[in-house]
Design a protein around this nucleic acid. Structure first.
Lengths: 193, 193
DNA sequence: AAAAATACGGAACAATCATTCCTGAATTGT
DNA sequence: ACAATTCAGGAATGATTGTTCCGTATTTTT
């Protein structure tokens, strides 16, 4: 009995991710959202509630999309070490190509909001946990296959991988464009494997 | 022929560092500054210009204070590896004790502002350079003294140290309070030395 | 003591913020 | 055709933003 929505909610969320990722939560105005999402004010508020709820949904989608992608890459590969290289080199390429250096939406949000917004803190904290688990499983698999050194515990390496990832995302956000810097960091990390 | 300032500009800057560090640039209002610095609006604007200039000065002071501290620690020590341990363990203790998890003012500012504010971008970028040099000199000294392995180049290790530092500061900002996580990361890093 | 300069608190400013509401048009299922 | 729902666009909301200005008090130098 009703008119159907003319926009795709998921596509709108992707647009929201883009703008929030680029400008941050506080830096993005309601007008920015209207302009970038291509929705009217009324549709926007009717569909997503308010700015904070929209941000929450966007960050959740971002984490889910990325989590699934990395999880599948690591679970389906027969060579974990090689796949880790691919994942990190991709992050480097993204950081270098990024004309508007966005870094990582999750890292940005953690730094900007985690301590002031409980909802966001939960998402960030949960992301840390599940990413650590993905890396843990991957490292363990790699160690059992003899691709990764067993000199260090899998748990330790998993945390270390995640930390290095956060670091290079900060570098990227800070605008670092020297590939050698990233390569050095990756080379150092892979020395441990 | 004039009345002297009743407040110490450096102390006021320290207060500004505190509040900006805690709430970020966009999250800190002019009222927050008036309240926290204990100055009147007029004095604040007469002394520091505007919010952006005050932030700039605060961030510069923060970087200078920290840079000098770490530089001296590393230059005067006879055991570089040990001093690096001290520096990183201190960062961990700070992260754990921090009731209001502030992370690192420089990392926070890099993530929030570097891509939108050229002035801040310069400070962040300069900080990266000089910190890398400090770590580079330290690693080189440590390698010559036989305290640090020469298996990896000093430049590479310096960049890697800085990156790991950024990472744990993000962790701290995200509210991580499990000491074991930090210890694992440090242990992994020190494996390379 | 007079003059000059600054600090001070608070009022006032225009701009922007997130959010709500209203209008009229468009599209759907019954 | 009718009722229901959603659309776009913009006006209007009240709150908060960063910043300026004013009158008064205070301290310094001459």
């Amino acid at each position: 009995m009703a008119r159907t929505k003319e926009f795709n909610e998921d596509q709108a969320l992707d647009k929201a991710i883009e703008i929030f990722w680029h400008k941050g939560y506080n830096g993005t105005s309601a007008q920015d959202l209207v302009t970038h999402l291509g929705l009217s004010r009324s549709s926007l508020y009717d569909t997503f509630g308010d700015k904070q709820k929209l941000f929450s949904k966007a960050l959740n989608k971002y984490q889910s999309d990325n989590y699934v992608k990395i999880k599948e890459l690591l679970e389906t590969t027969s060579n974990v070490k090689e796949t880790l290289t691919v994942i990190f080199k991709l992050a480097v390429v993204e950081s270098l190509e990024d004309r508007i250096t966005k870094g990582c939406f999750m890292v940005n949000s953690a730094v900007e909001l985690a301590m002031h917004d409980e909802e966001i803190a939960k998402i960030v904290s949960s992301n840390q946990k599940v990413m650590e688990e993905v890396f843990y499983a991957a490292v363990k698999k790699g160690q059992e296959a003899g691709q990764i050194s067993t000199k260090n515990e899998a748990r330790l390496l998993a945390r270390f991988i995640f930390n290095t990832y956060s670091g290079i995302r900060v570098l990227a956000r800070a605008g670092e464009k020297d590939k050698q810097v990233y390569d050095d960091i990756l080379k150092a990390m892979f020395t441990l494997f």
